[in-house]
Design a protein around this nucleic acid. Structure first.
Lengths: 128, 128
DNA sequence: CAACATCGATTACTCGTGTAATCATCGCCA
DNA sequence: TGGCGATGATTACACGAGTAATCGATGTTG
Protein backbone atom coordinates (compact mmCIF):
# COMPACT_ATOMS: atom_id res chain seq x y z
CA UNK A 1 0.00 0.00 0.00
CA UNK A 2 1.56 3.23 1.20
CA UNK A 3 5.12 2.82 0.09
CA UNK A 4 6.89 3.45 3.37
CA UNK A 5 7.13 7.11 4.15
CA UNK A 6 10.47 7.76 5.81
CA UNK A 7 10.29 10.08 8.79
CA UNK A 8 13.36 11.56 10.37
CA UNK A 9 13.85 11.74 14.10
CA UNK A 10 12.98 15.43 14.37
CA UNK A 11 10.03 14.98 12.07
CA UNK A 12 8.67 12.19 14.20
CA UNK A 13 8.59 14.51 17.18
CA UNK A 14 6.29 16.80 15.24
CA UNK A 15 4.20 13.87 14.09
CA UNK A 16 3.76 12.88 17.70
CA UNK A 17 2.08 16.15 18.42
CA UNK A 18 -0.28 15.69 15.52
CA UNK A 19 -1.04 12.12 16.42
CA UNK A 20 -2.05 13.28 19.86
CA UNK A 21 -4.28 16.08 18.64
CA UNK A 22 -5.29 16.90 15.12
CA UNK A 23 -6.00 18.85 13.14
CA UNK A 24 -3.71 21.49 14.57
CA UNK A 25 -2.45 24.82 13.33
CA UNK A 26 1.26 25.52 13.12
CA UNK A 27 0.88 27.70 16.16
CA UNK A 28 -0.67 24.91 18.15
CA UNK A 29 2.11 22.57 17.20
CA UNK A 30 4.66 25.18 18.15
CA UNK A 31 2.91 25.73 21.46
CA UNK A 32 2.78 22.02 22.15
CA UNK A 33 6.49 21.70 21.49
CA UNK A 34 7.57 24.65 23.59
CA UNK A 35 9.18 23.42 26.76
CA UNK A 36 9.65 19.98 25.26
CA UNK A 37 11.95 20.85 22.41
CA UNK A 38 14.19 23.85 22.22
CA UNK A 39 13.31 24.74 18.66
CA UNK A 40 12.71 28.07 17.00
CA UNK A 41 9.34 28.52 15.38
CA UNK A 42 11.04 28.56 11.99
CA UNK A 43 12.46 25.14 12.62
CA UNK A 44 9.05 23.67 13.32
CA UNK A 45 7.62 25.34 10.23
CA UNK A 46 10.34 23.70 8.18
CA UNK A 47 9.57 20.32 9.66
CA UNK A 48 5.88 20.74 8.95
CA UNK A 49 6.72 21.58 5.38
CA UNK A 50 8.98 18.62 4.93
CA UNK A 51 6.32 16.34 6.34
CA UNK A 52 3.85 17.92 3.96
CA UNK A 53 6.13 17.42 0.97
CA UNK A 54 6.66 13.78 1.75
CA UNK A 55 2.98 13.20 2.20
CA UNK A 56 3.10 12.33 5.86
CA UNK A 57 0.60 15.02 6.77
CA UNK A 58 -1.98 17.12 5.00
CA UNK A 59 -2.88 20.78 5.35
CA UNK A 60 -6.40 22.11 5.10
CA UNK A 61 -6.87 25.79 4.62
CA UNK A 62 -8.59 27.47 7.52
CA UNK A 63 -8.87 31.14 6.74
CA UNK A 64 -5.40 32.55 6.38
CA UNK A 65 -3.63 29.60 7.89
CA UNK A 66 -3.60 25.83 7.64
CA UNK A 67 -4.71 23.03 9.87
CA UNK A 68 -2.45 20.02 9.77
CA UNK A 69 -3.43 16.40 10.16
CA UNK A 70 -1.44 13.20 9.94
CA UNK A 71 -1.82 11.04 6.89
CA UNK A 72 0.77 8.54 7.94
CA UNK A 73 -0.81 6.53 10.74
CA UNK A 74 1.02 6.11 13.98
CA UNK A 75 0.49 2.37 13.87
CA UNK A 76 2.03 2.18 10.44
CA UNK A 77 5.02 4.16 11.51
CA UNK A 78 5.45 2.07 14.63
CA UNK A 79 5.50 -0.97 12.41
CA UNK A 80 8.02 0.44 10.00
CA UNK A 81 10.36 1.35 12.80
CA UNK A 82 10.03 -1.71 14.94
CA UNK A 83 10.00 -4.17 12.06
CA UNK A 84 13.15 -2.65 10.68
CA UNK A 85 14.90 -2.91 14.03
CA UNK A 86 13.66 -6.42 14.58
CA UNK A 87 14.97 -7.40 11.19
CA UNK A 88 18.33 -5.70 11.51
CA UNK A 89 19.15 -6.74 15.02
CA UNK A 90 17.32 -9.95 15.74
CA UNK A 91 16.87 -11.62 12.40
CA UNK A 92 13.19 -10.80 12.46
CA UNK A 93 12.43 -13.02 15.43
CA UNK A 94 10.61 -11.56 18.39
CA UNK A 95 11.68 -14.07 21.02
CA UNK A 96 15.38 -13.18 20.85
CA UNK A 97 14.45 -9.55 21.26
CA UNK A 98 12.51 -10.24 24.41
CA UNK A 99 15.29 -12.51 25.56
CA UNK A 100 17.66 -9.62 25.14
CA UNK A 101 15.58 -7.31 27.28
CA UNK A 102 15.19 -10.02 29.81
CA UNK A 103 18.92 -10.58 29.95
CA UNK A 104 19.40 -6.85 30.48
CA UNK A 105 16.85 -6.96 33.29
CA UNK A 106 14.72 -4.54 31.36
CA UNK A 107 11.56 -6.38 32.23
CA UNK A 108 9.56 -4.81 34.99
CA UNK A 109 7.36 -6.94 37.12
CA UNK A 110 4.29 -5.56 35.42
CA UNK A 111 5.88 -6.22 32.04
CA UNK A 112 6.24 -9.82 32.97
CA UNK A 113 2.69 -10.07 34.20
CA UNK A 114 1.40 -8.38 31.09
CA UNK A 115 3.47 -10.59 28.84
CA UNK A 116 2.18 -13.65 30.59
CA UNK A 117 -1.36 -12.57 29.98
CA UNK A 118 -0.56 -11.69 26.40
CA UNK A 119 1.14 -14.94 25.55
CA UNK A 120 -1.56 -17.00 27.12
CA UNK A 121 -4.16 -15.35 24.98
CA UNK A 122 -2.38 -16.47 21.83
CA UNK A 123 -2.05 -20.24 21.67
CA UNK A 124 -3.96 -20.99 18.46
CA UNK A 125 -3.21 -18.86 15.44
CA UNK A 126 -1.94 -19.35 11.90
CA UNK A 127 1.03 -20.92 10.22
CA UNK A 128 4.80 -20.57 10.39
CA UNK B 1 30.59 3.41 31.20
CA UNK B 2 31.54 3.58 27.56
CA UNK B 3 29.76 6.71 26.48
CA UNK B 4 27.61 5.37 23.67
CA UNK B 5 29.54 4.97 20.48
CA UNK B 6 27.23 5.89 17.61
CA UNK B 7 27.41 3.50 14.70
CA UNK B 8 25.82 4.28 11.38
CA UNK B 9 23.82 1.73 9.43
CA UNK B 10 26.59 0.97 6.96
CA UNK B 11 29.15 0.84 9.72
CA UNK B 12 27.08 -1.69 11.63
CA UNK B 13 27.20 -4.01 8.64
CA UNK B 14 30.97 -3.99 8.86
CA UNK B 15 30.83 -4.47 12.62
CA UNK B 16 28.67 -7.51 12.07
CA UNK B 17 31.45 -9.14 10.11
CA UNK B 18 33.94 -8.44 12.85
CA UNK B 19 31.61 -9.64 15.55
CA UNK B 20 31.28 -12.91 13.72
CA UNK B 21 35.00 -13.43 13.22
CA UNK B 22 37.83 -11.38 14.59
CA UNK B 23 40.48 -10.31 14.28
CA UNK B 24 40.16 -9.94 10.55
CA UNK B 25 42.19 -8.17 7.91
CA UNK B 26 40.57 -5.61 5.63
CA UNK B 27 40.73 -8.20 2.89
CA UNK B 28 38.85 -10.71 4.94
CA UNK B 29 36.17 -8.19 5.74
CA UNK B 30 35.91 -7.27 2.09
CA UNK B 31 35.67 -10.92 1.15
CA UNK B 32 33.00 -11.55 3.74
CA UNK B 33 30.95 -8.66 2.42
CA UNK B 34 31.20 -9.55 -1.24
CA UNK B 35 27.90 -10.93 -2.42
CA UNK B 36 26.15 -9.52 0.58
CA UNK B 37 26.78 -5.84 -0.03
CA UNK B 38 27.51 -4.25 -3.32
CA UNK B 39 30.33 -2.08 -2.07
CA UNK B 40 33.65 -1.17 -3.61
CA UNK B 41 36.70 -2.10 -1.60
CA UNK B 42 37.40 1.57 -1.05
CA UNK B 43 34.03 2.00 0.59
CA UNK B 44 34.74 -0.73 3.10
CA UNK B 45 38.18 0.71 3.84
CA UNK B 46 36.52 4.02 4.59
CA UNK B 47 34.04 2.39 6.91
CA UNK B 48 36.82 0.57 8.73
CA UNK B 49 38.62 3.85 9.19
CA UNK B 50 35.58 5.64 10.50
CA UNK B 51 34.97 2.84 12.95
CA UNK B 52 38.60 3.09 13.98
CA UNK B 53 38.39 6.83 14.49
CA UNK B 54 35.33 6.57 16.66
CA UNK B 55 36.89 3.85 18.74
CA UNK B 56 34.47 1.11 17.81
CA UNK B 57 37.24 -1.19 16.62
CA UNK B 58 40.99 -1.47 17.04
CA UNK B 59 43.70 -2.32 14.55
CA UNK B 60 46.74 -4.40 15.38
CA UNK B 61 49.65 -4.32 13.02
CA UNK B 62 50.32 -7.64 11.34
CA UNK B 63 53.25 -7.19 9.02
CA UNK B 64 52.31 -4.72 6.37
CA UNK B 65 48.61 -4.75 7.11
CA UNK B 66 46.27 -4.54 10.08
CA UNK B 67 44.04 -6.97 11.84
CA UNK B 68 40.80 -5.42 13.05
CA UNK B 69 38.85 -6.38 16.14
CA UNK B 70 35.71 -4.94 17.67
CA UNK B 71 36.02 -2.84 20.79
CA UNK B 72 32.35 -2.00 20.97
CA UNK B 73 30.62 -5.19 22.04
CA UNK B 74 27.70 -6.50 20.09
CA UNK B 75 25.62 -6.80 23.23
CA UNK B 76 26.27 -3.20 24.10
CA UNK B 77 25.30 -2.04 20.66
CA UNK B 78 22.17 -4.19 20.68
CA UNK B 79 21.24 -2.52 23.92
CA UNK B 80 21.88 0.97 22.67
CA UNK B 81 19.74 0.39 19.63
CA UNK B 82 16.91 -1.52 21.17
CA UNK B 83 16.70 0.59 24.30
CA UNK B 84 16.53 3.72 22.24
CA UNK B 85 13.74 2.34 20.10
CA UNK B 86 11.89 1.02 23.11
CA UNK B 87 12.13 4.41 24.73
CA UNK B 88 11.15 6.43 21.69
CA UNK B 89 8.28 4.29 20.52
CA UNK B 90 6.89 2.47 23.49
CA UNK B 91 7.69 4.63 26.47
CA UNK B 92 10.32 2.16 27.59
CA UNK B 93 7.87 -0.64 28.30
CA UNK B 94 8.47 -4.03 26.75
CA UNK B 95 4.96 -5.40 26.95
CA UNK B 96 3.46 -2.81 24.58
CA UNK B 97 6.18 -3.61 22.09
CA UNK B 98 5.36 -7.28 22.13
CA UNK B 99 1.69 -6.43 22.01
CA UNK B 100 2.39 -4.44 18.90
CA UNK B 101 4.11 -7.34 17.18
CA UNK B 102 1.34 -9.60 18.27
CA UNK B 103 -1.30 -7.27 16.85
CA UNK B 104 0.60 -7.24 13.57
CA UNK B 105 0.70 -11.03 13.59
CA UNK B 106 4.46 -10.89 13.65
CA UNK B 107 4.67 -13.67 16.16
CA UNK B 108 5.55 -16.99 14.65
CA UNK B 109 4.39 -20.17 16.29
CA UNK B 110 7.89 -20.86 17.50
CA UNK B 111 8.18 -17.32 18.79
CA UNK B 112 5.15 -17.92 20.89
CA UNK B 113 6.45 -21.19 22.20
CA UNK B 114 9.79 -19.65 22.99
CA UNK B 115 8.20 -16.67 24.68
CA UNK B 116 6.07 -18.96 26.78
CA UNK B 117 9.15 -20.78 27.93
CA UNK B 118 11.00 -17.55 28.54
CA UNK B 119 8.26 -15.92 30.53
CA UNK B 120 7.69 -18.99 32.60
CA UNK B 121 11.30 -19.01 33.61
CA UNK B 122 10.86 -15.52 35.02
CA UNK B 123 7.84 -15.19 37.20
CA UNK B 124 9.24 -17.07 40.16
CA UNK B 125 9.44 -14.09 42.51
CA UNK B 126 6.06 -14.51 44.04
CA UNK B 127 3.19 -16.81 43.29
CA UNK B 128 1.24 -16.83 40.04
C1' DC C 1 -5.50 53.41 1.83
C1' DA C 2 -1.19 52.57 3.90
C1' DA C 3 1.59 50.48 7.32
C1' DC C 4 1.89 46.50 9.77
C1' DA C 5 1.46 41.87 11.46
C1' DT C 6 0.95 37.03 10.35
C1' DC C 7 1.83 32.86 8.26
C1' DG C 8 3.57 29.70 4.96
C1' DA C 9 7.36 29.22 1.38
C1' DT C 10 11.98 29.68 0.07
C1' DT C 11 16.67 29.75 0.89
C1' DA C 12 20.74 28.79 3.69
C1' DC C 13 24.23 26.49 6.05
C1' DT C 14 26.51 22.81 8.68
C1' DC C 15 27.23 17.95 9.67
C1' DG C 16 26.96 13.08 9.17
C1' DT C 17 26.59 9.39 5.92
C1' DG C 18 27.07 6.64 1.79
C1' DT C 19 29.93 5.93 -1.66
C1' DA C 20 34.19 6.03 -3.85
C1' DA C 21 38.63 7.67 -6.23
C1' DT C 22 43.14 8.90 -5.47
C1' DC C 23 47.41 9.40 -2.73
C1' DA C 24 51.26 7.80 -0.11
C1' DT C 25 53.99 4.37 1.89
C1' DC C 26 56.46 0.28 2.09
C1' DG C 27 57.86 -4.32 1.31
C1' DC C 28 59.01 -7.51 -2.63
C1' DC C 29 60.55 -9.32 -7.00
C1' DA C 30 63.07 -8.97 -11.26
C1' DT D 1 67.95 -1.35 -6.45
C1' DG D 2 64.17 0.57 -8.60
C1' DG D 3 59.59 0.08 -10.17
C1' DC D 4 55.32 -2.54 -8.87
C1' DG D 5 51.75 -3.97 -6.27
C1' DA D 6 49.30 -4.05 -1.94
C1' DT D 7 47.40 -1.60 1.85
C1' DG D 8 45.92 1.99 4.65
C1' DA D 9 45.17 7.23 4.65
C1' DT D 10 43.39 11.24 2.60
C1' DT D 11 40.28 13.67 -0.10
C1' DA D 12 35.89 14.14 -2.57
C1' DC D 13 31.24 14.80 -3.33
C1' DA D 14 26.20 14.49 -3.17
C1' DC D 15 22.41 14.03 -0.24
C1' DG D 16 19.50 14.04 3.87
C1' DA D 17 18.72 16.05 8.30
C1' DG D 18 18.87 19.62 11.83
C1' DT D 19 18.44 24.20 12.50
C1' DA D 20 17.12 28.62 11.31
C1' DA D 21 16.75 33.37 8.88
C1' DT D 22 14.44 35.76 5.49
C1' DC D 23 11.08 36.50 1.79
C1' DG D 24 6.58 37.10 -0.09
C1' DA D 25 1.79 37.11 0.08
C1' DT D 26 -2.22 38.28 2.38
C1' DG D 27 -5.18 39.82 5.69
C1' DT D 28 -5.86 43.48 9.63
C1' DT D 29 -6.28 48.01 11.42
C1' DG D 30 -5.86 52.91 12.29
Amino acid sequence: MNPDIAISEAESVVMDILWRAHPASADEVIAALAGQQDWQEATIKTLLNRLLNKGAIKADKDGRRYLYSPLLQREQWLSQESDSLLERLFGGRVAPLVAHFSKQRKLSRSDIAELKRLIEGLGNDDAN
